[in-house]
Design a protein around this nucleic acid. Sequence first.
DNA 1: AAAAAACATTGACCTGGATCAAAAAATCAC
DNA 2: GTGATTTTTTGATCCAGGTCAATGTTTTTT
Lengths: 190, 190
Amino acid sequence: MEAKDNLRQLIQMFSTFEENELDRIENCFKTRIFKKNTVLLASDEVCKTFYFINRGCLRTYFITKEGHEKTRYIMMEPSIGTALTSFISQRPSFEFIDALEESEVLAISRTDFYRLADEIPAWKNFYLKIMEMAYSFQNRKIESLVTLSAKERYEQLIRENPKVVQRVSNKILASYLDIKQETLSRLKSR
Amino acid sequence: MEAKDNLRQLIQMFSTFEENELDRIENCFKTRIFKKNTVLLASDEVCKTFYFINRGCLRTYFITKEGHEKTRYIMMEPSIGTALTSFISQRPSFEFIDALEESEVLAISRTDFYRLADEIPAWKNFYLKIMEMAYSFQNRKIESLVTLSAKERYEQLIRENPKVVQRVSNKILASYLDIKQETLSRLKSR
DNA sequence: AAAAAACATTGACCTGGATCAAAAAATCAC
DNA sequence: GTGATTTTTTGATCCAGGTCAATGTTTTTT
């Protein structure tokens, strides 16, 4: 099956698995399809699912007390992710997850995810790698926020993630870059 | 020995160890004392050490192309840390580590750190917990940067980490909060 | 304890990006 | 396909926090 093959391929980039471990892991994932704009996790809910995106695009974001959306992370196929803070702590999430396009994902429950971590050492390494990457990603984001202008952040995104710029609306891109939609529009015309 | 007892106490807050494991771990750490302003890691060096701060205060920071310091993290006793991105990847660090006060630390080499992770499951869990915490911390920092004003970030720091505000110079605090020293000075007088 | 260096404060001024408002263009729903 | 909703663009204005410069104050060095 197409989606599960893609999953196998991706997780093997992070850690080394036996065939039977891959079978075991694969069986924990269930296919789900979400229509555009579906909310997979609302704020105040506890995040109990980890996603592999096989087709489409999800994002995590939160809403400020002034009512503005701030996008933390955009997941475009093939990739993985979830509302990590809540997934880890099992406290209510301040983040939302929603689908920016119709998306086909493979989902694993937190219970299964952690069971795998206890029972398959390579899966614990996989988890560790994910955390390392997530950390580095956030670190990089802070670096961009504190050293680059709005325009430079936009140019960096075009350079490093042109697919996202092509497929995602300016409204969402702006919220990802932490600038206003109006500003982004002006940046592009300059 | 005082410092090593403090180390034992701290790591047991993250994971559960046997006595003999603790002995083993403890033996990997060497005591070092750094004078104020000592640079423990310069940018472009590869970070090969992880620190437990038993007394004093270290920080990680980087320098922008305009020559401004940006402080990422302040470690005040008792705590742990290092220039994580380089420590993980073993690529040259863009971050520096230096001592904000005369500090007594226990240091473990990356080689020993990873050997322990392979040989003591509880240490791998410890590492995972650290990564989870580091991730959450960075996430929180981004949230503060994108939702709070300079004044609100300063007030949050006073609220959540008053010790740091007392012991660290305004120059460093400002670079931690991503504001200018002059602005911080004005905030305080308002 | 004096000189030097680093740090903190205060003032005047400037600017990148936000805000508010309204029109134009694209997308969606039936 | 057409009306409704959402997104994008453009204009006018504002302001938090930066910059530059000068003066105090504290810390370090000798």
